[in-house]
């Protein structure tokens, strides 16, 4: 489903060119749960952003569903994200001026679905994640765990094939860690392709992974089949 071949990604950071990913290759099958592990700055988030079409590769080939997408125009990538991807950010990235239900339905807005139907779909998912009572709260009125759950609802609102989660457990407490774990386990059961990063190898998330990809300084150090053997 996802095929990355000899991917290199460089960033301009001030006057310095930073090589975030260095000639990596990885293939991910449909329905796989991939764990990206490694210390901060090792390239996990960059890879997630590339797979999520949030940034372009500098060199190499990125194929999604047998199509080379690295040279697709911007509007095509937007459409791809809208139809196929759900993104859970480490910092949640909810819009502060919007209520919870408005935030989670943002991906549906340009599709032309009416407000009534959008809200109904949002309420169903919010209920599944025990957030229905927070639907009309403003995003900045939610706790960290609630914000993360809202961000998950937003990622799922379009029923995407691929879910990309960047350190989904790093900013929430243990109670919410278990909730998020359950959600991801449920999504895995439903056959979604899940790619998630985390930097703490002891995290419980590692129990869910089909394969674990270890990163070190922009390189793939190791790919382990099955869960991490902690």
């Amino acid at each position: 489903m996802i095929k990355l071949t000899n991917i290199t990604k460089t960033y301009q950071s001030g006057k310095v060119m930073v090589r975030a990913l260095n000639n990596i290759s990885l293939e991910i099958k449909k329905g796989e749960f991939i764990l990206l592990v490694g210390p901060s700055g090792s390239g996990k988030t960059t890879l997630l952003n590339i797979i999520g079409c949030l940034t372009r590769i500098t060199k190499g080939s990125f194929r999604l569903a047998d199509q080379e997408v690295s040279h697709f125009p911007d509007h095509f990538l937007s459409a791809l994200r809208r139809k196929k991807m759900g993104f859970i950010f480490q910092q949640f990235n909810l819009l502060s001026g919007y209520s919870t239900w408005e935030n989670v339905t943002l991906p549906l807005l340009p599709t032309g679905i009416s407000e009534k139907k959008r809200k109904a779909r949002a309420m169903k998912l919010l209920e599944e994640l025990n957030l229905e009572t927070r639907a009309d709260f403003m995003a900045n009125e939610l706790s960290g765990g609630e914000q993360q759950r809202a961000a998950i609802v937003r990622a799922l609102i379009n029923d995407p094939e691929i879910i990309l989660a960047d350190e989904p457990l790093s900013n929430i407490d243990m109670v919410n860690v278990n909730i998020v774990m359950d959600i991801l386990a449920e999504l895995k059961k439903k056959g979604k392709t899940i790619i998630t990063s985390f930097h703490d190898p002891k995290t419980l998330l590692s129990r869910l992974g089909d394969r674990t990809v270890s990163f070190q300084s922009g390189n793939i150090a190791k790919i382990t089949d099955g869960n991490m053997n902690l």
Partner: peptide, 16 residues
């Protein structure tokens, strides 16, 4: 910029 980036990440197109 952040808001636009988030909207684009959600699948919004620049024109929209």
């Amino acid at each position: 910029s952040q808001e636009i980036g988030i909207l684009k990440a959600m699948g919004w197109q620049t024109g929209e």
